[in-house]
Amino acid sequence: MPRGWWTRRSNYFWYIVREFTSLPLALWLLWFLLEIRRAQDGPSGYHPHSSLGFVIFSVIVLLFALYHSVTFLSLAGAILHFNVADRPIPSQLIVLSQFAAWAAASVVVGFVLIYFAR
């Protein structure tokens, strides 16, 4: 395989982008673990990291996370295979259910974070 194989076709390129998004996501989550550790001293001693550089990094990581999530969930129709009354559930319905579950989980997590932070 030539070194630049992933630049030869758009599908290869977007596949590499999908895989690459895991890296900044992992770095951000490592930081998040450190923040949780810092927060254990209580609200008085906790000052969240809010420099402009970090906010920009977080926004970029959010875009990566959204891209990774959307591409991952879109593939669920190919992975999951269920039959109801001897008939397979259409893959579009499976994908839709994944996005619905994602939206519901986001609402629950968002509610918990906002409610308990008050």
Binding site: R9, N11, Y12, Y15, E19, L75, A78, I79, L80, H81
Partner: peptide
């Protein structure tokens, strides 16, 4: 397999090998 998916794109018979692989993983 890391699910590039190109196998299913080029398949001339609509076999969808990528789907077969992911379902076998499951």
């Amino acid at each position: 397999c890391s699910f590039v998916g190109e196998c299913s794109v080029v398949c001339p018979k609509g076999v969808d090998p990528a789907k077969a692989i992911q379902q076998t993983k499951l």
